[in-house]
Nucleic acid binder design. Structure first.
Lengths: 205, 205
DNA sequence: AATTATACAGACTAGTTGGTATGTTTAAAT
DNA sequence: ATTTAAACATACCAACTAGTCTGTATAATT
């Protein structure tokens, strides 16, 4: 009954995400999206009942991919579970590897883009962003507490904010990388995060 | 000849900056600005020949204040010039102090806001942002090289990216702070930067 | 007091915006 | 072959957008 709409919907999401990261959500018109996807208004409003509905779908999709990347890195580092610090360091290294082969600056993060025009969005969307970033905090907190069971810290550190530091550096690096048009900023900043982890923890005597 | 227009112009800049940080630049209409400032279209377009002209003025003004804060912190830490590490740490501490008394999340940074809709702006504006962030890099590089003359590093660090880390953490902390609606994120993240500086440098033997 | 340039007020416009209404095509199920 | 619902296409609209135009108030200068 009718043809398959998923490719169209996916195309809309992919192209509009790219447009939003360049122009902002308010700065991206539906007509622009239609041009990039070579579809028409009828098709667009068949898949999304409003522009705000597209925003919600964009964030949900981004949150899905975001969490998937986190889980992938978690799985790949399970091998080091016996040494929680090694695991933590390798966890960061996974993202260094991903980010060190960029030719152009990373297009950026939808969370950040949306946060800087948060008043245009429904509370539902803003909650979604809040929850998604909290997941990183909670996950990193677990990894850090595992480390603390076997390591001391060379100075007093607040673990919750140390968990946040991961996303903080990512988001900040995106912005500086885009501003300076230097793709390698992101990987280089993540190396400093890894350095900090290496320096702040020491084996219990 | 005619009355003083500076208060009006300043009011436009102040209110539109606040609006832009909440709604994005494209998401902020001139009518919104008129409502917030209680002026009329005639007054607005007397002071700014176009909306893009306002964008340029906003960035220039923000860059001015941004640099002023940096210079203020530099001056306040000149006292520690004999110990470059102490000076660097105190430099960071100055911003920790400023950011630790926030009741609401810091409204954010115009550079970041603009970067996420960069395609809507002229090259002149984007260059302005690039130059402004480069100033932080260059200034921190000087402070760091001063440190390196009297200290060793506990592990290999790239100085240029270490200089960038300052703005990276600031920008990232703004976003996470806004997303989670937690004002204290910024100061806490800056403390980690200070920690990192403390840990990475050690006195030459 | 008259002049003059500055600083603003407010009605107006052409183009763009998100969104709708109605019709048409597609392809699986009967 | 016919039906049927999903997947589009296209013309259209009201509201909003940035920007203009013409007129008026203000205050220092002559």
């Amino acid at each position: 009954m009718g043809r398959d709409g998923k490719p169209t919907r996916d195309k809309i999401l992919t192209e509009s995400k790219a447009l939003v990261l360049d122009n902002g959500f308010s700065g991206t018109s539906i007509d622009q999206i239609l041009e990039r996807t070579s579809i028409t208004k009828g098709a667009f409003f068949y898949h999304f009942k409003s522009k705000n509905d597209l925003a919600l779908a964009l964030i949900q999709e981004h949150a899905r991919e975001d969490k998937a990347e986190m889980d992938r890195a978690l799985e790949k580092t399970e091998f080091f579970r016996d040494d929680p610090l090694k695991r933590l360091l390798q966890f960061v290294q996974e993202f260094i590897d991903t980010m060190s082969s960029l030719q152009k600056p990373y297009p950026g993060c939808l969370y950040a883009s949306f946060i800087y025009e948060a008043q245009n969005f429904s509370q539902e969307i803003n909650n979604y962003i809040c929850d998604s970033i909290s997941i990183w905090r909670d996950t990193l907190k677990i990894l850090l507490h595992d480390v603390l069971r076997e390591y001391d810290t060379r100075l007093d550190v607040d673990i919750e904010s140390l968990a946040d530091l991961f996303k903080v550096i990512f988001e900040g690096a995106f912005i500086v990388s885009k501003a300076l048009d230097e793709p390698d900023v992101i990987a280089k900043q993540l190396i400093h995060l890894k350095n900090y982890f290496e320096l702040v923890f020491e084996s219990k005597k």
